[in-house]
């Protein structure tokens, strides 16, 4: 069986390596991906039609906004599935007790102090990544993960209960749903204004002091905030369920 696996791996690896020759060189301007007129349109027109300098975010949140909306739904579904598999209520059967007993001591003073200083900075950086995602690298996914990681750090440094005070389970689920509602809401409001789903340019009447170009920029910020809500909530809920064996009482 091992030899069969080795043969399969060598065959697949050989095929992949032989296909590497067909790839265009890095930064090749004559490659099909770079010379196709759609790429030209994104590169030259993004700043004019959306007023967003970071064209990665523009493609992600505007031109292909439908894609990103369901990416958020995928993360939400993954989180719900993990809660469905791991979460248990009441004193269930002890599944697999940790082999090495983790010593329960008072949290170390140095660690708690460092985290108390570090967590606000991490959270402000996460908010910056979300809010500045359409001007510099970043966006809802990255910012949401960093924001969720700050709560995970709190749970690791003190205990799960302390982190749960800020994000209890019910609030986590509400935040995750609200995030998707924010994203889909932008699309639905665009439909109410008589345009296509997620066509942000018609939203300028309800946004103060904007024209149809700035409306796309602001709506991108809005949907990134929605993505960040969902990602933050799901990241923390995955951690808390994994670390506490599903009862959300004692973390690592």
């Amino acid at each position: 069986m091992k030899i069969l696996g080795l043969i399969a791996v060598i065959l697949t690896g050989g095929l992949l390596l032989s296909a590497v020759h067909d790839f265009p060189d890095w930064g090749d301007t004559t490659s099909p991906a770079s010379s196709y007129r759609l790429s030209q349109y994104y590169i030259t027109e993004t700043i004019h039609v959306t007023a967003v300098p970071n064209m990665v975010t523009a493609v992600l949140a505007d031109f292909r906004g439908y894609d990103t909306m369901f990416e958020t739904v995928v993360i939400f579904t993954a989180g719900i599935a993990i809660i469905g598999v791991l979460r248990r209520y009441g004193p269930g059967p002890k599944l697999a007790a940790p082999k090495e007993t983790i010593t329960k001591e008072k949290p170390d003073l140095i660690i708690t102090t460092t985290c108390r200083l570090l967590i606000p900075i991490i959270q402000i950086f996460a908010l910056y990544v979300i809010a500045h995602g359409h001007h510099s690298p970043g966006g809802g996914f990255q910012g949401g993960v960093i924001f969720g990681a700050s709560f995970i750090l709190l749970a690791l440094a003190k205990d799960l209960q302390t982190a749960q005070k800020w994000v209890p389970e019910k609030r986590v689920l509400k935040l995750a749903v609200i995030g998707i509602f924010i994203y889909a809401g932008f699309g639905l409001v665009a439909m109410l204004f008589g345009s296509n789903f997620l066509d942000y340019s018609v939203l300028h009447p309800i946004m103060p002091a904007t024209d149809s170009i700035m409306a796309r920029s602001h709506s991108m910020l809005g949907v990134e905030i929605g993505v960040a809500f969902t990602v933050t909530a799901i990241m923390f809920s995955i951690y808390s369920n994994l670390a506490s064996h599903g009862d959300l009482k004692e973390g690592l």
Binding site: A96, P98, I102, V145, G148, I152, M235, Y239, L242, H245
Partner: peptide, 15 residues
């Protein structure tokens, strides 16, 4: 960042 934390949490809860 996060997936390493998830993996470590899973390892500590299993063997």
């Amino acid at each position: 960042g996060v997936s390493a934390v998830f993996l470590i949490a899973t390892v500590l809860r299993t063997s």
